[in-house]
Write a protein that binds this DNA or RNA. Structure first.
Lengths: 211, 211, 211, 211
DNA sequence: AATGAATGAGCGTTCATTCAT
DNA sequence: CATGAATGAACGCTCATTCAT
């Protein structure tokens, strides 16, 4: 019995060679992410997770020693996934990409991952400060890493003389991230294609930061 | 048994002429707002509220028929309070205030109210989508009204030819509000004076929206 | 809400002035003692206790913070009661009572209390080594005190030259107490009057110890 | 699937010719006896037994249809073992052995078996009355037989005019057995050599019974 | 011969709620 | 006006047991 360590976004390439155990485990983690994203930390019931994963609640204890461990695994996995997705996106940019290009790409990555791809990311974002300290132990490095990347993006912009003087880098970064994070609260597919939101967000973020 | 309809921000000037009942009622609602703002909807326990209000839990039932009604009252009151605060702020602006001035004032009002003044506003903002539909019945008008004011602010900007063409008014408004709402997740007084955040936010919001 | 500190043997003199709470509390503790005496530590279910006390199981939590605390209270109370009963019995003996007289009286006190009077004593005796260390914290002093009294009784016998030379005082004491403790496993009222057992036990104990 | 009928005390000389199944079976029964002796009936978990026997819990069901049957087998086996051990001990005594000699030998056999040799005996003794009636069905004959032997020993003493008149044979027997049984609750090897306890017990028992 | 995977029953506990006082 | 006392529903979790492999 191994814990699922690959981030769920990659889960698509797991073929039919998966064992039954691995499949149940994945269903469980996915279900937990979905419930956590929807109901929030305190509202997340094991019975809801179990129902969604199509097992009985005690089956969870075959894979995780407690509710706490399961939630921690979701947050951990979600945070790692967000960071990996952003890192990969940035890595794929050509060397000629400017700080501005990179921020635009980061905005798109953040929104796509959060809105389109992953309950895990939504679980992380929506429960950011709702979850007790001890549930985040394992995720703190990842979350810190994610914020660090953004810090770097803003710093690069500043170094290139492209950050407006009246924007404190730290506050500016949080305001940008806030506007992106909050999209989970209002955007849904019926509101139109995600590309529309991405384009507006990119434009607004860059105008907000640059001279 | 009367519901408390005056918004809690004003509650401070309630003198000593209030009855004991009214005072307990106020303590209860304030306590509920504080707990709701901190713990979130599902994490809010009547016992926590009661403790904070210095009564026994069943006393709540003298003022509200259920947990649901109490929470609804907080959200309602919080939403009304946010709207009233914003309306008053805008009303106090001179007639010569431009759409830009008005948006800057609205940003400041939003942040001050949410960060500095009111657990009620924080309760509304943080639990925005976490609370089941039926808990918001009474608040929906107020919340709708609040959003409507912002819609007007953005529309005025657009009418004045000051809204950039690539900013969809509706999406733009939500992105701005998201960046403001999210401040409750990261700002705290130790991070420096609120005026710093307000200034940066105003600048970023206006640059994001205007040509 | 006060914990019941008087030992249950004395409970008989509580008149009708008792509050309802005190009566429920007493029923609960009595029920816990009875179940513990009968089913043993691991076999003691809160639901059994509740049923016997004629309340619903969660009512227990109005009086005790956990199963552990309730059981601890029974053991504590039981141990204190045994000790008090023995001390009182010995104190009531005339000053002219010999060490032999005192041991005979102690044997009777032990048996009467354990067999006739108190589920609490039976709960203590039968669960002596079955209960985890931490459940006995509060009772350890009392239990230690009880054993200490017996140590004194045997020592007095020895000092009076009435302890046979081949009886190690410590082992001898445990063998005597074992024979008394074990009566809870086999004696019941249908086997005849308790006085019969007491007489035989006294005779055997004294012949076992004395020259 | 065969039940293990040989008493466990003899189990040590089972050679390597035993099948793997028989060895697992033996480990299981031994583990059950150990856990039962230590934790008591209600505290005995199949998972503890399995761990001690180094198998997974469901493996137990290959050998026993239920927890009940396993425990019953331990008790049965333990009772049979006690009886056999006592019978053998008595049979090995010379024909010239007096009733007194035989009781002394029985005391030693009881203590050695219980304290030194067998978790099975300790499981029987400590759970004597803790185990529901139906778990003892199979053991009742053996236990009855064991008590019967002791009845005979006391009766022989009486017939030889060596039982004090004020000792009821039945009560006397239970008091003696109680003092011996209870040793499992307090004696441990660190308290000194078992021979010390045996000597004191023999002396006390005989002085308690004889004129 | 034994395990991995999962379940159903039940336990200790929490919590919103009731009701007599 | 508020509490003390108690309850019913539900939750997290444990455990004996099942069953395909």
């Amino acid at each position: 019995m191994t814990r699922r360590t690959v981030e769920p976004v990659d889960a698509e390439d797991t073929g039919t060679t998966e064992t039954k155990s691995a499949r149940t485990h994945a269903r469980l983690l996915d279900a937990a992410a979905a419930v956590l994203a929807e109901k929030g930390f305190a509202g997340t019931r094991l019975s809801d997770i179990a129902e969604r994963a199509q097992v009985q609640a005690p089956a969870i204890y075959y894979y995780y020693p407690s509710r706490e461990h399961l939630i921690e695994a979701v947050i951990s996995s979600g945070a790692a996934s967000m960071r990996a997705f952003l890192e990969r996106t940035l890595a794929e940019l050509p060397d000629t990409a400017t700080p501005t290009d990179r921020i635009a790409a980061a905005v798109e990555a953040h929104l796509r991952h959060e809105l389109e791809l992953s309950d895990y990311a939504r679980a992380v974002v929506r429960n950011a400060n709702q979850i007790p300290e001890e549930f985040r132990r394992a995720a703190i490095t990842e979350i810190g890493g994610y914020y660090e990347i953004w810090r770097g993006l803003v710093e690069d912009l500043r170094a290139a003389g492209q950050l407006r003087a009246d924007v404190d880098p730290s506050v500016g970064r949080m305001i940008v991230l806030g506007s992106l994070n909050w999209t989970v609260e209002w955007w849904d597919a019926q509101r139109g294609p995600i590309e529309g939101v991405i384009a507006v967000a990119q434009s607004m973020v860059l105008h907000a930061l640059r001279p």
